[in-house]
Simulated scan of single mutants.
Amino acid sequence: MDNENKYNYEAEKQKVLDKKIKARTTYTKKVEIEKKPDWFKVKLPTGDNYKEIKTELKKNNLWTVCEEASCPNISECWASKTATIMILGGTCTRACKFCHVDTGNPGGKLDLNEITNAAKMVKVMNLKYLVVTSVDRDDLADYGASHFANVVRAIAESRPDTLVEVLIPDFNGVEEHMDTLAKSNPFVIAQNVETVKRLTHVVRDRRAGYEQTLKCLEYYKKKYPHISTKTSLMVGLGETVEELIETMKDLRAIDVDIVTFGQYLRPTPRHLPVVEYYKPEVFEYLKEKAYEMGFKFVASGPLVRSSYKASDYMDHLKAQGHLK
C-alpha cells in the first residue's frame, strides 16, 4: 500500500471508528452488515483431484474439517495435498462468542479411533501436510494433550514424510501437558490469539486469555526452538489497524514465526456481529507490516483461515534451503 492510499485508508477508517465506537468497545449496540462485499465471491470446489479425494474419503468413512465447515478454499488446499482434521470430538467445553462448535460437557469421553483414522487419512489423501485441530476439553485430566500427541505420533509412524501442524487448545497453561504435546514433535505448533487484547474478553471464553495464549506460545518457542510457532487473528470485530500492529509487536517479542489474518464472518445471529469488512488492500497492508516486523511467513486475506494453505510455509522453507 503506497503512502497516498494508506493515508486515504486511515482517513476513511477514522470516519468508521467515529460511527461505531460503542459497538467496538462494548457491543451494547449490534452493528449488522447483511451483504458481503464482492471480494467474498468464490468458485465452487471443482477438479478431478477434488472429486477423487472426496470419493475415497467417503468410501473409508473419513471426514475433514474442510468439508464439514464448507471451507471455500477446499479444492485449492486439497490440490496442494493439504487438509485439516478435528479431533477430541465435536463438543467444546468453552463458549467463545465467534465459534459455531457445540458447547457442553463431553463427560470425559474419547474416541480412540481418531488416532488410527488420522493415520489412515494421510494415506488415502496422499497428504504432504496435515493440520490437526480440536475443541477445548477442560473435562479431561490433561485437557487432551496425550490424545493430541498420540495422533501426531501415529501419523509419523504411518507416513513419516507428512508434516503435521497442530492447532491446539491452551491446555490451561499447564507446562506438563504442553510438554506432552510438544514431545510428539509436530512441525508447527499453532495457538490462536484470535483478536486484539482489548476485545479478548468479549470475543473469547473467559478461560481463554490474550496473555495466556502469548505465554503458551513463548513457552513452546523457548523450550522447543526447532518447532515453528503460529497464531491467527480475525479482523472485523471492532479492532483498529493500530491495535493489530500492537498485537504483531507482542507476537514478535516472543518470536512467533507465522501469523495469519482473515475476515470474521458471523456464523449465526446468536454470535457477535461483523463490525466491518476489511478491503483486500488492507489485508495486503497487514501482510507487508508483518513481514517488515520479521515474521517468517504471513497469510492475509478475506478468506484466509488458520489452516489456509498451511503447507505454503513448508514450501517457503524449502525454497530457502531450510527444509529438504
Score class of each variant (00 low, 15 high):
Asp2Phe: 06
Glu4Lys: 08
Tyr7Pro: 01
Glu12Gln: 09
Thr28Glu: 10
Lys30Ile: 00
Glu32Gly: 00
Lys36Met: 11
Trp39Gly: 03
Thr46Trp: 07
Tyr50Asn: 04
Lys51Gly: 04
Lys58Gly: 08
Trp63Cys: 12
Glu68Leu: 06
Cys71Asp: 00
Ala79Ser: 10
Lys81Ile: 04
Ala83Ile: 10
Thr93Asp: 02
Arg94Trp: 03
Lys97Ala: 09
Thr103Pro: 10
Thr116Arg: 15
Asn117Tyr: 15
Ala119Met: 13
Tyr129Ser: 07
Thr133Glu: 05
Asp142Lys: 12
Val152Asn: 04
Glu157Asp: 15
Glu157Gly: 12
Asp161Asn: 12
Thr162Lys: 02
Thr162Gly: 07
Ile168Ala: 06
Phe171Ala: 08
Asn172Met: 06
Val174Asp: 13
Pro186Phe: 00
Leu199Thr: 00
Leu199Asn: 02
His201Gly: 00
Val202Ile: 10
Gly209Gln: 01
Lys215Ile: 00
Tyr220Asp: 02
Ile245Thr: 03
Glu246Pro: 00
Ile254Trp: 11
Gly262Tyr: 13
Pro269Ile: 10
Tyr277Ser: 10
Val282Lys: 08
Phe283Lys: 07
Ala290Tyr: 07
Gly294Tyr: 12
Lys296Tyr: 00
Ala299His: 06
Ser300Thr: 11
Leu303Gly: 11
Arg305Gln: 09
Ser306Leu: 08
Tyr308Gln: 05
Met314Ala: 04
Asp315Phe: 13
His322Leu: 14
